[in-house]
Design a binder for these strands. Structure first.
Length: 127
RNA sequence: CAAGUAAGGUAUGUGAUCGCGGCUGGCAGAACCGAAAGGGGCCAGGUGAGGAAAGUCCGGGCUCCACAGAGCAGGAUGCCGGAUAACGUCCGGCGGAGGCGACUUCAGGGACAGUGCAACAGAAAUAAACCGCCUGCUUUUGCAGGUAAGGGUGGAAAGGCAGUGUAAGAGACUACCGCCGUUCUGGUAACAGGACGGGUCCAUGUAAACCCCAUCCGGAGCAAGACCGAAUAGAAAACUAUGUGGCUGCUCGUCACGUUUUCAGGUGGGUCGCUUGAGGCUGCUGGCAACAGCAGUCCUGGAUAGAUGAUCACACACGACAUAACCCGGCUUAUCGCUUUGCUUGUUGU
RNA sequence: GGCUCCAUGGUCAAGCGGUCAAGACAUCGCCCUUUCACGGCGGUAACACGGGUUCGAUUCCCGUUGGAGUCA
């Protein structure tokens, strides 16, 4: 990932939980806090209640992949923590991707025009 | 062909694009982060989870601590022989139980070394006479004695069954079976078979109750441990301003604060431990087998918030259970299916 | 990743292998009260699951499942 690295320390997670803003939908919860750096830091948390190691690891990968492919759309300089909820354990990649985009829109950290433009260019790329 | 039984094998595949962790080679040896150690760039190649990686139930390697030797305590194991680094594992036997059979299954030492427990029911539970049967006395009926064949209770009531015998009975006596002892034969042994003797003589079960006997076990665990080392607590030495603050309003005095170096210490962090090993595969030899020996050949994850994913296409059986965290040998548990071989029983055909 | 421990009504909990598994709070009915509360009487309700040892298991043994604690 070009503009991002992962959030590692428990202290950082706690800071984001305590001082950041949160939005949630059916599958995910997203905490966001500005970090003052020139890059984003992404933390993913999946509770043991969601499933066994295979399920949890798979969800973690789906979230990371969804973020990676939409990385260009996000604003720089925020800490993001994504928490997976129990409902998310049977999700496909596209459901996760849509959920992340939706939450990013709620936080106003996603460039909406760019996304639509990207879709248009994707449609027009045959030219 | 059907039903069964035992032992194994395998664990979606192929292609394209994007992405991740090690490794090797090449190019840079710059920028950047960091006090340092160290990390870090680009390109190419190759590589990257399981049969249970799980549970952590056993055993071992490895590391540190302790240790003259021995014992106690505590724990584990428990038919016999073998395998193994070791084991509670495995293999082959023996005995009991189950199955027509192939085969399965068993914590399978000791109950006269001692102690404990055995509710309820039952006359009686480790100790014997309630009913019954028989004899005598009395003869309304009960009393005294004999008796464990029958009744009922219970998980368990003086070995079973048949006969002799008797007042009624009783291993009191006899045959067969069981049990105990001695002995012979076979077997390394558990044990099996036979012969002779004991009438079974103080009673049952429980040792996954305490216990006895035999064998084994020092403790902790890679967050072990080793090294490098900001910070911060500390020790010593040197230096400087004669500075700041307190005693005190001023002077003197005195106390605290400063900088550098060295030492000690070892936190955040980093490096090692870390993967070539009781290793896999093939063949030969020994062994019924577990396994062992020899020869050839192969190198196959090493992360540190933690790498195998996503999308598209095709195929079919439509994909279960499940993700290494120091490493091995087992056990247990979860699991969609597919498949191989041996054997048993039944039916049909030749 | 290693180690240690626990599981009994809705909740908190006692329980030598043996008769109907104590209690307390909760709630269901009745009584008391003008009514509510307090109080009194009675009821419902449980041994996490699967095997084994034993005549008999909540208890003993083994294995699962779930839940805690601890080591940086």
């Amino acid at each position: 990932m070009k503009y991002s690295e992962s959030l590692k320390k428990n202290r950082d997670f706690l800071t984001v939980y305590r001082k950041g803003a949160s939005f949630a939908n059916k599958y995910l919860v997203m905490y966001v806090r500005e970090n003052g750096l020139n890059k984003n830091r992404l933390g993913i948390s999946v509770s043991k209640k969601v499933g066994n190691s295979v399920v949890r690891h798979h969800l973690c990968r789906l979230v990371r992949e969804a973020y990676r492919l939409q990385e260009e759309l996000f604003h720089r300089g925020v800490d993001i923590v994504v928490v997976a909820r129990v409902n998310a354990k049977d999700c496909t990649y596209f459901e996760i991707e849509r959920a992340i985009y939706h939450l990013g829109k709620l936080h106003h950290i996603v460039e909406v025009e760019k996304k639509e433009k990207a879709n248009e260019t994707h449609n027009d790329c045959n030219d």
